[in-house]
Design a protein around this nucleic acid. Structure first.
Length: 497
RNA sequence: GUCCGGUUCGUCUAGGGGUUAGGACACCGCCCUUUCACGGCGGCAACACGGGUUCAAAUCCCGUACCGGAUACCA
């Protein structure tokens, strides 16, 4: 049997980090076993679903390079089939019409209202006491024909339990007494989530359902529907949840942009790095290696390596350095400085182009210079954004000076104001401008002035790059070249800031 | 409330009867160095608690605590 898995987001927001990981795991599983990875948009909640959200989710998946097979299925397109299925179960006596008027929305928070209701019912509640459960078919038909509104509920057996073998959590059992006769079709004719999911999974011939652990109880309900339909359920595997630093729910409302996939794309993360980070949140290959290419993840992935405990996505609100998980930031930096240069370049070019720092010559005449420079400066960069921010001085004459750098490297040494232009004079007469010669000249100059090499180098760094950190200054001089180095050493701009 | 899960350094995790409980991130220190967010070396730091089983428990069993999820004519 072919393995077919699906990622089924409901389009009520952007691609959440937890959903992204669910998509990733589905993708990895499918690719690992040579199966299909399908996409289904669960847009049955017409009120909350938006076109924009669908686009944002697809953007997120595309960024992560989780390409899906076959056409995207829109759940709302299948509503008629869902209704037909509910009617079928009704006709077979496996479901019944519930004429109880729809309860008015409580003014309390939905979750709290549910909790309160459950607590109030506690001990007393018999899940099978719906008065309409045993209504005769004739009377039901008559009342329906008379136009009385009704919901269709699944008739859950009095005794017994639902069970399934979870790919991650093992055998799961739930007594029928814990499960209400669930509503399949609302009184306004709209199919409910559990029915829609089961119908679509059957229709799409899904073999493995891999989703968040928050669906564990839904799965029992869905198993019941499969049984009523006489269809063998797929294999289920539930994933541990990704929590906020306080172990609470990670949500847009509370935590903002950190949970959105597009945030990382826009912040200059490499999809490969973020994917790698995500893969290790709740899964491990059981080895100490932690940098994996997509192909390696596909090769190593298995349900056995998925944990049963939730993971915390660690970040500190209001701390610019810790705005997102440290490890994700480290991993991105690691990718930027160690991945093959030709794989990095395709990401650097658009970044520079967007900042108007790219020139066509970087493709031909200055290709070697460009690649060497990127290779030189990437060693201390964390995101793609750094190429256009901190790296700006390498590609443009119009760059800013970091006040902290001026303070630390220039202001403290007023002599540099005349020394650096003077150093430019020494450069002026040089025939060859490469590291060894530059070093010789700068050292001689330093000795002559009776100062320390660091003072000269750091002053020059500030003037030439605008920042206090970067590669070896000898490399910087050489990369920038004789003319630009001289020009910048003579410039008084930084001194007047 | 009830049901279902979970619990190894601050975080991500390895290990699943005998380990100095390993790695990574973060943090701290030292080294390299003209700076540094690179690199090298080192340090700090964990088996939730209580009972059992066993020669031996972080590992198996039970209980407790705590955390999470679920409870809907939402998805």
């Amino acid at each position: 049997m072919t393995v077919r898995v699906r990622f089924a987001p409901s389009p009520t927001g952007y691609l959440h980090i937890g959903s992204a990981r669910t998509a990733l795991f589905n993708y990895l599983y499918a690719r690992h076993v040579g199966g299909k990875f399908l996409l289904r948009v669960e847009d049955t909640d017409l009120a909350r679903s938006t076109e924009e959200s669908i686009r944002s989710i697809l953007d997120g998946l595309a960024w992560l390079e989780l390409g899906h097979d076959e056409e995207i299925v829109f759940q709302s397109d299948n509503a008629d089939k869902h209704r037909a299925t509910a009617k079928k179960l009704l006709a077979e006596g496996k479901a019944y019409r519930d004429f109880t008027p729809k309860a008015a929305q409580s003014d309390a928070n939905v979750k709290d209202a549910i909790k309160d209701r459950a607590r109030a019912n506690q001990g007393e509640k018999n899940m099978r006491d719906n008065p309409y459960r045993s209504l005769s078919a004739e009377e039901g038909d008559a009342r329906a024909a008379a136009g009385e509104p009704f919901a269709i509920r699944l008739k859950v057996a009095e005794t017994g339990k639902s069970s399934f073998e979870d790919g991650v959590y093992g055998l799961q059992e739930r007594d029928y007494a814990e499960t209400e006769d669930l509503v399949l079709l609302r009184s306004d004719g709209h199919p409910l989530y559990n029915l829609a999911v089961v119908c679509d999974d059957i229709e799409m011939q899904i073999s493995h359902v891999i989703r968040g652990q928050d669906h564990l109880t839904n799965t029992h309900k869905q198993v019941l529907i499969y049984e009523a339909l006489g269809i063998i359920p797929p294999t289920f595997a539930h994933l541990p949840l990704i929590m906020a630093p306080n172990k609470g729910k990670l949500s847009k409302r509370k935590h903002g942009e950190v949970v959105s996939m597009t945030t990382y794309r826009d912040a200059g993360f490499l999809a490969a790095a973020f994917r790698n980070f995500l893969a290790l949140l709740g899964w491990s290959a059981g080895e100490e290696k932690e940098i994996y290419t997509l192909a390696e993840l596909v090769e190593k992935f298995s349900l056995d390596g998925i944990h049963r405990s939730n993971a915390i996505f660690n970040f500190t609100e209001n701390d610019p350095r810790r705005w997102t998980d440290d490890k994700a930031q480290w991993m991105n930096a690691e990718y930027i400085r160690t991945m093959p240069l030709d794989e990095l370049l395709p990401f650097v070019r658009p970044e520079l182009k967007a900042a108007k720092l790219y020139r066509d010559e970087y493709e031909d005449d200055d290709k070697a210079w460009f690649e060497n420079t990127i290779n030189l400066i990437r060693q201390r960069f964390f995101t793609l954004k750094d190429f256009s921010n901190q790296g700006r001085a390498y590609f443009s004459e119009d760059y800013d000076f970091d006040p902290a750098a001026i303070e630390k490297n220039l202001a403290k040494f007023p002599d540099l104001r005349s020394w650096l232009p003077e150093l430019a004079e020494r450069f002026e007469v040089m025939d060859s401008f490469t590291e060894p010669e530059i070093e010789e000249v700068v050292k001689a100059f330093t000795e002559e002035k009776g100062t320390k090499l660091g003072i000269i180098m750091n002053g020059a760094r500030t003037l030439l790059t605008g920042v206090a950190v970067g590669p070896s200054m000898l490399s910087v001089f050489e990369t920038l070249g004789k003319d630009r180095s001289i020009l910048r050493l003579r410039s008084q701009i930084a001194w007047n800031v």
